[in-house]
């Protein structure tokens, strides 16, 4: 790892270990990645790694998956930046997310080689992102309310919780609507996602 860091800086040690774990997973797969591999990759001592990750190997794997999910949502937020309204935001967001999932080489490889191990972690770790998606959507809903665009009775906080659940669900599974078809995706966004939230 090129990034230099000292053990007196807990944040960067944490980051360094997580990135090293991810590098090991990419090289060896999840089943074969050991704490010793992460020691070698990061150049940190076994003791230091256990001090930061007392759960050992399981915690390292979990944190590496959580870190990649976090990175994914940062890129997603970047991509939808500057959308004119909620419809465009969700439309572009779902399009980007589906494509990013499909093009994530390591993810696709591991879905084939060790699906059980990966999918268990993806499912538990990704649901932890719900509050972040909701927090991201909230200001957009509040802006829509200020503009008089929300249906009567819609509470922005409640609506952001509901929308975050659907966004995550559609990223994970396509369903009957073809999300790669722009017209169908737009129709889904205006119906399934927003018909109960925005005024017709």
């Amino acid at each position: 790892m090129g990034a230099m860091s000292t053990e007196s800086d807990p944040l960067s040690v944490h980051d360094q270990v997580v990135r090293s774990t991810y590098a090991c997973i990419a090289r060896f797969g999840m089943a074969k990645t050991t704490v010793e591999d992460v020691v070698r990759e990061s150049g940190l001592s076994r003791a230091t790694i256990y001090r930061h990750f007392p759960g050992g190997r399981d915690e390292l794997l979990r944190e590496a998956v959580a870190w990649q999910i976090g990175e994914f949502f940062i890129r997603l937020a970047d991509h939808v930046e500057g959308s004119a309204d909620l419809v465009e935001l969700l439309d572009r967001g779902i399009e980007f997310a589906r494509q990013a999932v499909r093009e994530h080489a390591l993810l696709q490889r591991m879905l084939v080689t060790e699906p059980d191990r990966l999918l268990g972690l993806l499912s538990t770790e990704s649901t932890k992102t719900l509050p972040f998606i909701a927090a991201y959507l909230l200001p957009h809903l509040e802006r829509a309310r200020a503009a008089g665009d929300l249906r009567p009775g819609v509470d922005p906080v409640d609506a952001s919780d509901h929308l975050s659940r659907l966004v995550l669900s559609y990223i994970g599974a396509r369903g009957v609507v073809d999300l790669d078809d722009p017209a169908q995706r737009r129709d889904l966004v205006t119906r399934e996602l927003l018909a109960g939230i925005l005024r017709p």
Partner: peptide, 11 residues
């Protein structure tokens, strides 16, 4: 069970 609810299998 959890794989049923995740990417790929969830469809």
């Amino acid at each position: 069970i959890t794989p049923l609810l995740s990417l790929g299998h969830a469809d």
